[in-house]
Nucleic acid binder design. Structure first.
Lengths: 194, 194
DNA sequence: GATAAAAATTGATATATTTTAAGATTTATT
DNA sequence: AATAAATCTTAAAATATATCAATTTTTATC
C-alpha cells in the first residue's frame, strides 16, 4: 500500500534544517497491522450528517468531497484525491456528531485508522507526532488559503480555481464547483463563458 | 510569564484517553532561556507585507489583528487576544514573504520564539511535538470554522459573530468587523440596526 | 474642555448576483 | 440505439449588497 511509502517520505512544506525521519520498523509493523482498507463506490458515503467522524482516511485512489446541507441544497467545502488524508475536521477533533457529509465522487480506495488508534500511536510511538504535525500543518495551510479565497469576490474566486485547482476543474462537476466557490451554478456558467 | 503555565496545561479540544503531559524541567528551562519578550504599542506592527513571518508569538496580554490590503483597503482575517498564539500561517510555514500584516489593536505584550528555534526544539525535545500538534489542531479547527462561516450569507455571518464571537463585538471597531465578515461597514451598520 | 479627526449611521442610487424559467447538452439506463 | 434523467447554459426579472454622499456621533489631540 502506497500509504507507508507516503508516510515515510513526508516533509515540511517549507524549508527546515531538521528533516522528518523515516518511520522505525516497529512503527511500520504496527501500522501494517492497524491500517484497514475500505472501498467506496461512486456516490457512496464515508460520513453522513449526525455520524461522528471516527476515522482518519488516506486516499489510495479516487476523489471525495465534503459538503453540508443548507436549505436542502448541498454546499461543498473541499475535494480531496489520491495522496490526501481526510476526515471531518470539526467532528473528528471534537468527537461530536458531524454537520457535514463526506462522499466519493469517483470509485475510491482508502486506508484508515480510528481516532483512538491514532492517539494510541502518538502515545506509544512519539515519532509519529512529527508526521501528525506536518500533515496537520499542511491542511491548516490549505484551510487558511481557502478562507482567504472566500474573502474575495466571485470572479477572483473563479480565477483562483482556474490557476490553482486546475485538476478539480476537469474532474469535478460544475454544480459542485459553483457551491465550492459560493456562487450559483448559473452564475458560474456565465463567468466561465468569459 | 503565563506562557509556561499555559504550555503545561494544554489539552486536546475533544476527548482523549492520553492526556498531554506537563513539560519536562529540561524543556521548561530551555524555553525560559529561549523565549523573548516583545511589547507592542497600540497600532504598532508585528509583521508587514513583504516581511517573512519568522516568529511564533504567544499573546500575554492585548489584542492583535491580521489583515491584507485589497485595492488600498484592509481586509481583516482574524483577531487574537490573551492566551492565543499568532503568526502569518502562509508566510511562517513556507518561510516566504507575507502578503498580510499583523498589528496590535491594543497595547500588547508577547513572548516569542523563532521558526528555527521551534524546529530545533521539536528535534531536541520531541515531547514538544505533542504541544505543537494540539495547538496546530486548535487553530486548524478555528480556520475550518471561519471558512465555513464565510460560505454563508452576510446576515448569517453577522449572527455567527454575535453568538460565537461576542467578545470581538465589544473590543473591536465595527469597520474592522465588517471586513472580517466580508461586507462594507455601511451594510454592517444596517444589519446591526435590526 | 474645545476643536479637530475619525468612525458610525442614514439615505438615495447603482450594480453584481440570485432567482425563476426555459431550452440545449450531456450522461445514464433499458 | 432510444429514452429518460441529470446537468449545463442562456435570458429576463427580482433582490441583496455596494457605492456615493451627507450627517451625526464618538474618539483623539492640544
Amino acid at each position: 500500500m502506497r500509504i507507508l511509502e507516503f508516510l515515510n517520505t513526508i516533509q515540511e512544506p517549507g524549508p527546515s534544517q531538521y528533516k522528518v525521519q523515516p518511520l522505525s520498523s516497529d512503527l511500520q509493523e504496527h501500522l501494517r497491522k492497524t491500517l484497514k482498507s475500505k472501498t467506496l463506490a461512486k456516490n457512496e458515503y464515508l460520513l453522513k450528517e449526525g455520524d461522528t467522524s471516527r476515522r482518519v482516511s488516506f486516499i489510495e485512489s479516487g476523489l471525495l468531497r465534503c459538503f453540508y446541507l443548507s436549505k436542502g441544497k448541498d454546499v461543498n467545502r473541499w475535494f480531496m484525491s489520491e495522496g490526501d488524508v481526510v476526515f471531518s475536521v470539526s467532528s473528528f477533533y471534537m468527537q461530536q456528531p458531524s454537520y457535514e457529509y463526506i462522499q466519493a465522487l469517483e470509485p475510491s480506495q482508502l486506508f484508515y485508522i480510528t481516532h483512538d488508534e491514532l492517539y494510541e500511536i502518538y502515545y506509544r510511538f512519539p515519532e509519529f507526532q512529527r508526521i501528525g504535525l506536518v500533515l496537520t500543518g499542511k491542511y491548516y495551510l490549505l484551510s487558511d488559503q481557502l478562507s482567504f479565497v472566500k474573502s474575495k469576490p466571485p470572479r477572483e474566486r473563479y480565477e483562483w480555481l482556474v490557476t490553482n485547482q486546475q485538476e478539480l476543474l476537469q474532474r469535478v462537476a460544475s454544480k459542485h464547483l459553483a457551491s465550492y466557490l459560493g456562487i450559483t451554478s448559473e452564475y458560474f456558467s456565465r463567468i466561465k463563458r468569459k
